[in-house]
Design a protein around this nucleic acid. Structure first.
Lengths: 337, 337
DNA sequence: TTGTAAGCGTTATCAG
DNA sequence: CTGATAACGCTTACAA
């Protein structure tokens, strides 16, 4: 049944062109080292036979690898999509492939995926978390390939990092709201799901202490779960019922903010007059042609590009020196605050 | 400088455990075929040495491959993210890896990526287009691996397909609007960028002929470009200026619809009283806790899962029979129509 | 400029 | 249940 059209091999090309395989190999990788005539002859055979080099075999032989693995929590919610786009773009330019998987915010799955990815011997690993299981940490330590942690900036750097301070970004947004004269700012976001959300919350708390009444308006984290707009709506509702005088709400993601916005509307609250709403991430729907959300913009695409760069240039760095690139953040004021 | 911690090989494990490599191989792949005692001894060495099998070498030797390549136009805009999630999830369950790249709606880049991906000898290829360059087509024909085209259902199937009729979905939405008594429906969307948008447009036209005045309210496609909310706002504005009596607008994507919505608001038009707006895709922001957009829901996650399934089960099918799976679509009525 | 020989790290095959 | 041997498709190192 399975009449597997077999792949053409380099040996077949070589035989057909009456040269040795190494010469075919050279035509592909270093054509300038082959006589023009020979090259043309071989190229013709390659085209005629539709030869596609087997990169896996090449990698095995040369002990190299032109692939990079990336692990992100999820694609839905759009925070990390631009980073993957950036990675993909930069890797393509360097003829590298992207191995990709979603961890679903589970460090167990992350460990699993790290192990699985490592079997492919990628040139590098891009992770969206700085907190791993013991086993995962051991794998990362032992494997000897560059690891880049993105979207955070850990205090003690075991690996390269490209990100920003989620704490400071959270702090900055509350300060910004304070400057706009909002004094009783609440926080919506699940700090159980992601460390990044938690750090934004801690930044929020610090800012509340410095600028606000010192009251933390945040309903208790009950369960883990997706930071979707439904949750945003629910938490927003609970929050303003518990603290009816809240005049602004800072949400740990734009998606949550969108939910808050819809709930405010449902309750007949005018935004930003009755209550201001701020998000995080500057997702596409947040812009002026969308809901016009005041938010924090993170250069996600750039994060991806830089992470790729770090891996591609790994040899240039001293192995001991971990790079730490702060891409910063930017507060974008729109209609909701 | 580059003190590359070398990977532990199977041979080293074997030597350390005083067995042959094939026995180590068996412990990893078919542990039940190894005596419990031997197995334990080898497993101990594996753990102690932190051995991670080199899957590339294994694939080469066994002429198998546990990776699947996927090519989508872009991650931003969120139409395909759920499909990638579905793919990733299903592949993980089958211990396969996902090779991923964005083509940016360019068939040139697509061709490029297909060639590059094929070098990895993936077990299958998932594509989001049915229209390829000549060279790409030749590659796909010749490679002998299963190809699944998603998000469309081509008339003549060269490959497997998992999708739905964009034409019918477009048609259905206009009929739905007609049933809600909207009679002068406009279309917003760039049919130059994506064939899928074009098909939705053709469905729109067919429905206009059948139910409407037969007038096609769509501003001319000027340039290619992203179907973002800014474009949605601009096209919406141009449309209602050209046909001021338009009472509903069907947008080829939710992102465009969002832009239309914001533009309507800017112009003081009440939605849906003055004008109804419908989108396509049921992106996350479209739901009831978001902007409450009337739209067409596509089971994107399921598309990804089914595509993976088709590739994983490839051997079960007759090579000549291309599967064609219609996942359908569903009209979701919300606040904007 | 081209070729020979020896791997790269695994698994298939067949034997014991 | 375990092992010896020969691939898998390519590249490195060295020769010619």
């Amino acid at each position: 049944m399975r009449e597997h059209r077999r792949w053409v091999t380099m040996a077949e090309v070589a035989q057909e062109a009456r040269v040795s395989t190494i010469t075919v190999s050279r035509v592909i990788r270093t054509p300038e080292k082959v006589a023009a005539e020979t090259r043309a002859k071989i190229q013709a055979v390659i085209d005629r036979l539709g030869y596609v080099p087997n990169e896996g075999a090449g990698d095995l032989s040369s002990r190299q690898n032109r692939s990079v693995a990336a692990l992100i929590p999820t694609l839905t919610g759009s925070a990390f999509t631009s980073t993957i786009d950036g990675l993909s773009t930069r890797l393509r330019a360097a003829n590298h492939q992207l191995l990709f998987a979603c961890t679903d915010y589970s460090s167990g799955k992350e460990e699993d995926f790290i192990a699985t990815m490592l079997r492919r011997r990628p040139a590098g690993l891009v992770l969206t978390s700085t907190h791993h299981t013991r086993e995962a940490d051991a794998l990362l330590q032992g494997c000897g390939i560059p690891v880049v942690e993105v979207w955070e900036l850990p205090k003690v750097a075991q690996h390269h990092a490209v990100g920003f301070s989620n704490h400071d970004a959270g702090f900055a947004m509350v300060r910004f709201l304070h400057e706009l004269s909002y004094r009783r700012v609440g926080f919506v976001g699940n700090s159980k799901t992601s460390i990044r959300s938690r750090q934004r919350f801690i930044g929020y708390q610090a800012a509340c202490r410095e600028f606000g009444s010192g009251v933390f308006r945040k309903i208790a984290d009950t369960k883990k779960g997706p930071n979707n707009s439904e949750r945003g709506a629910q938490e927003f509702a609970a929050l303003i019922e518990q603290w009816p005088d809240t005049d602004a709400v800072f949400c740990a993601s734009d998606t949550l903010a969108l939910g808050a916005l819809s709930e405010a509307q449902r309750r007949g609250l005018k935004v930003p007059d009755d209550i201001a709403i701020a998000g995080f991430g500057d997702f596409e729907f947040a812009n002026e042609f969308g809901v016009g959300l005041t938010t924090v913009r993170i250069p996600g695409f750039e994060i991806g590009e830089l992470a790729a760069q770090l891996i591609l240039n790994h040899d240039d760095y001293d192995q001991k020196e971990m790079q730490k690139i702060d891409v910063g953040y930017e507060i974008i004021r729109r209609r909701t605050a």
